[in-house]
C-alpha cells in the first residue's frame, strides 16, 4: 500500500518535470549559468558576487528551509567565524549608532569604493520612536534594551546578531554585516549601544 503510494507520487513528480522538460535542479543550474553570462561587473559590484557561498547555496537549494542537520552544521560554522572584539568592550556610542542605522549607503554599484557603509537598519526595523520612516521586513526593535536588559550575555548576543544573523537563523532575511565586512567592529559596537544603552532613544 505504502509502496504503491510512493510510486504514484514519483510518477506525478516525473510528470510535473515533463511539462517543462526540466527538473527544478536543472532550471536552477540554467538560471545560475545564464546570470553569470548576462551580468557584468560595475564599480565595486563585481561579477564574483554571483558565486554562492555555502549558506546561500543551502538556502537557495532548500527554499530557505534546509534540513535540520544541514542548518545546524552551517550555523555552527557561521557562529565560530564571528570575531568578537578583543578588548571585550561591546558598547560604543549610541549617537553614532543612530547615524549608522539611518544610512542605507553602501555595497551598490553606485557607491564609491572606500566610502563608509551605513547599517540600513531603518530600512527593515523600527528603532527610535522619533523616526516614523521605518521598514517592516524585520521586527520592531523599539524598547529592545528595555525589554532585554543590558547583561553581558545580551550584549554578546546583540553584537553577534548584527555581525552574522545567519549564525542564529541560517536563512534569515537580515544581512551578515560583520561577516562580509560591510560594517567594522567599531560600527557594530555603536549599533549595539543604540539598541542597549538606557540613554538611547530606542530605550529612553
Amino acid at each position: 500500500m505504502n509502496g504503491k503510494l510512493i510510486i504514484l507520487g514519483l510518477g506525478a513528480l516525473a510528470l510535473a518535470g515533463c511539462a517543462t522538460g526540466m527538473s527544478e535542479a536543472e532550471s536552477r543550474q540554467k538560471a545560475l549559468a545564464m546570470m553569470k553570462r548576462d551580468f557584468q561587473s560595475r564599480g565595486i559590484a563585481g561579477i564574483d558576487r554571483l558565486n554562492e557561498d555555502e549558506v546561500q547555496k543551502a538556502c537557495n537549494e532548500y527554499h530557505n528551509n534546509p534540513p535540520k542537520e544541514v542548518a545546524e552544521r552551517l550555523q555552527t560554522a557561521q557562529m565560530a567565524a564571528i570575531k568578537f572584539p578583543a578588548d571585550g568592550q561591546l558598547l560604543g556610542d549610541w549617537k553614532e549608532g543612530e547615524k549608522l542605522a539611518q544610512s542605507g549607503r553602501g555595497m551598490t554599484w553606485s557607491d564609491s569604493p572606500g566610502s563608509p557603509n551605513g547599517g540600513n537598519c531603518y530600512n527593515c526595523h523600527q528603532l527610535s520612536p522619533k523616526e516614523l520612516s521605518y521598514g517592516t521586513i524585520g521586527p520592531s526593535l523599539y524598547r529592545y534594551g528595555k525589554i532585554r536588559g543590558n547583561s553581558p550575555e545580551i550584549q554578546r548576543y546583540t553584537y553577534g546578531r548584527i555581525y552574522n544573523a545567519k549564525a542564529y537563523s541560517l536563512c534569515s532575511n537580515m544581512p551578515r554585516f560583520g561577516h562580509v565586512g560591510a560594517l567594522t567592529e567599531q560600527q557594530i559596537k555603536h549599533l549595539v549601544a543604540l539598541l542597549l544603552d538606557p540613554q538611547s532613544p530606542v530605550n529612553h
Binding site: T20, R49, Q56, N64
Partner: peptide, 19 residues
C-alpha cells in the same frame, strides 16, 4: 515555459554581500 521557470529561479536566487 523554460524562460518562466528560469525567471522564477532568478527571482528567488539569494546572493551578493547582503544575501
Amino acid at each position: 515555459r523554460e524562460a518562466f521557470e528560469i525567471g522564477k529561479q532568478i527571482f528567488y536566487h539569494r546572493g551578493g554581500p547582503y544575501d
